[in-house]
Design a protein around this nucleic acid. Structure first.
Lengths: 247, 247
DNA sequence: CGTAGATTTGAGTTCTGTCAAATTTTGTGG
DNA sequence: CCACAAAATTTGACAGAACTCAAATCTACG
């Protein structure tokens, strides 16, 4: 169905400004009149916004292949995109330019609108998670998502770098950082996952983890198709690996 | 900027199945392989989903002019669209057919993608509301939205039919129906709005109501531009009016 | 090796959920 | 128009999950 490879949309390259990012690098969302498309090429990025009272929220997590159209961002001041992984690459394009291309390339039009639709579905699913699940279930849902998205299969289980701090997790799941810490500790002591070094998580069984979250089926449907999990020996996705050892 | 009138996209009519709806009428979301576009022509509709544990959630509220692409819905079983107003009209189109039209009509393509983007932004804003605001603030946000969307200016203030039951509100705002009832009663006794007959609310001052919600600015930006509030004597928007009297 | 930032943990508080009962509203049929 | 049953809403009492605040640890990094 899709003609493009993993992160796809290669044909947009001539129109894009490519930016190599480092952790915590921030990108402002242009105003309405300067509609912009960001394309995640590698790494994990976050859409973060701040409420008038000074608190912050993480609206969504972006993975390679995701498109971010500024017009689809809520009109909240202080909304920005931040890099969550140590390194990453993001493309920046003017939306009107993209729109022009779509007319001549129906395949491209189909692909972009499909991706945007899928991300809207993800947003809605996240809504469901926040609105309907307990703290524990929310964390389990996030861990399942990350295992599917940035995890690599190893003999010990699925290993992944956690790109979000406790505070990030809290801001994403509508919880408190203290509460997240408690929940993560509890899940760890229950053996749902182990911690191997700085921010590296090992999930022995995705099944067991998924069982902690009522809507894990939807999460898997949403993130598994886009998943490109591979053995830790794979050369791709270097973004996620700081040290090459499998554990 | 937009060439089309209020609910727009008239040129899609030949390709659409028009459905006149009555309250609580339900529409299934077609599966992935049968991507469909719904177009709200009049009335208020809800996207409702049910969790495995039997609870329900209302993912979003749709107003005239909104587009619902089934591929942008989360992959949750039991997700459906329901009519919230007594009467309404909805168009149903096959997405591939729409996609074909977009190629020949760039203006249409622009308009549809713009609407879909705006609705994604609304979803993200709703996320923010659920995740970051207290119960009272959430209800105030919803009331502000409804006043802007379906309200009509009268000498007594902004009058609107509340299309959502207490349970609906609860399912939309991630609260409990009992809690919603308490909050609504409290807001009413605080004079934020009055109740005039069956499900009819009167908001004396949008400013005062908006002050109850920290992100009212964004809500207004999001819903005011699409708003077509008019005096209660206006012939349009009959959907909202059961009895013609202004109070 | 020390400092700044992140994480963990404890104790107490608050908001919201739960359950049950009372009350109001709505729809229906004489 | 009234009576009645069903549904929706309101209200009270209580329980629980998550938040807040503060202090103790831990970690990264110069």
């Amino acid at each position: 169905m899709k003609s493009s490879p993993e992160t796809g949309l290669q044909q947009l390259e001539p129109y894009a400004v490519s930016i190599a990012t480092r952790k915590r690098q921030r990108f402002a969302i242009p105003a309405e009149h300067d509609d912009t498309l960001f394309l995640i090429r590698s790494g994990v990025f976050l859409a973060r916004t701040s409420l008038p009272d000074g608190r912050h929220q993480i609206l969504s997590i972006f993975y390679p292949g995701d498109c971010i159209r500024s017009a689809a961002m809520p009109p909240l001041d202080g909304t920005e995109i931040t890099a969550a992984t140590d390194t990453g690459e993001i493309w920046r394009l003017r939306w009107p330019a993209v729109e022009g291309l779509l007319q001549d390339d129906q395949e491209l039009a189909r692909e972009i609108s499909h991706r945007l639709a899928k991300q809207t579905a993800r947003l809605a699913l996240h809504n469901t998670i926040i609105a309907g699940l307990s703290g524990d279930e929310r964390v389990a849902a996030l861990m399942t998502e990350l295992a599917l998205r940035v995890g690599k299969d190893t003999p010990a289980g699925i290993v992944f770098e956690m790109p979000l701090s406790r505070t990030d997790i809290a801001e994403h799941l509508a919880l408190n950082a203290d509460t997240v810490s408690r929940i993560v500790s509890r899940m760890r002591s229950n053996g749902l996952f182990a911690i191997a070094g700085r921010n590296r998580l090992v999930c022995r069984s995705l099944e067991v983890l998924a069982r902690e979250s009522p809507i894990s089926t939807a999460i898997r449907r949403m993130h598994e198709t886009a998943s490109h999990r591979r053995a830790a020996t794979s050369p791709a996705c270097v973004t996620q690996m700081k040290t090459p050892g499998p554990l």
